[in-house]
Design a binder for these strands. Structure first.
Length: 262
DNA sequence: GTTGAGCGTT
């Protein structure tokens, strides 16, 4: 894909990975390659894409052969407007194998980590991040995914998808629906019924399940074979609830019908 | 057709 005709990472022996964020979803590796290659020798450009849709995720990884060139690219391309969007170029913090990377270079690969002792202490001072980059991240960074990083394999996609449709839509829908239901309940019957005829409570309960199915207008292809049976079943309890004392059969044609009808 | 915090592939 983004590789130069090779599958998988070409060589990460002495390459510096740069993380390019805030790129447009239409930007491809071919578009970033010439841009980054101008500032140094780009070994590989990789743009993670969604496995479901195949669209770019909005960020890319650019691997440089030399750190000085990578640093230059970061300084020059960071904040550059690409395709109408300001991209953010910074050294990759993590690697594909969760290795520790310093300034884009792998410090301790997983292999070495295993052989060595597991004593690794968090070094906050090790994060020598440039300040000029902080202001970019400061624009909106209030997400704590330290704990959620556990399932960062697939949660990433979900996070991104839900991120945009959860906050705004959720609030909007909730607000709208809440009002709608409220109005409906008030208009129809909510407070008077509950305190006026509590006896109806059980009656409504039996109807609850039926309505539930009605709520989802999902056709039942398998059941469509015997719709009569289902209808009969539903109709059975219906009269029972309406007139538990009176018998439907008792309602035999009465003389009143003539008066009522006519 | 849409989106927008973040860290990677056979």
């Amino acid at each position: 894909m983004s590789h130069f005709g090779r599958a998988g990472p070409p060589d990460i022996r002495d390459t510096y990975s740069l993380l390019v964020l805030n790129i447009t979803f239409r930007t491809t590796a071919d578009d970033l390659f010439p841009l980054f290659d101008k500032y140094g020798k780009v070994v590989d450009v990789f743009i993670p894409r969604d496995r479901r849709t195949g669209d770019s995720r909005g960020f890319a990884f650019v691997r440089y052969k030399y750190a000085d060139e990578a640093q230059k690219a970061v300084d020059k391309l960071d904040g550059r407007v690409v395709d109408g969007r300001e991209i953010m170029v910074q050294f990759a913090k993590y690697g594909p194998d969760a290795e520790r990377i310093h300034k884009g270079r792998i410090l301790e690969p997983a292999e070495k980590l295993k052989g060595r002792s597991r004593s690794r202490s968090p070094r906050p001072s090790s994060r020598h991040r440039d300040d000029y980059k902080d202001r970019r991240r400061n624009r909106s960074r209030s997400r704590d995914r330290s704990e959620h990083e556990r399932h960062r394999g697939r949660d990433r996609y979900r996070s991104r998808s839900r991120s945009r449709s959860r906050s705004p839509e959720y609030r909007k829908e909730r607000s709208r629906r809440g009002r709608y239901e409220d109005e409906k309940g008030r208009s129809r019957s909510r407070s008077p019924i509950r305190s006026a005829s509590p006896a109806r409570s059980p009656a409504r309960n039996s109807v609850s399940p039926r309505r539930s199915r009605s709520a989802s207008p999902r056709r039942t292809p398998s059941r469509s074979r015997s719709p009569a049976r289902r209808v009969e079943k539903d109709r059975s309890p219906t009269p029972k609830s309406v007139s538990p004392r009176g018998k439907p059969d008792s309602r035999s044609p009465s003389p009143q019908r003539s008066d009522a009808d006519e």
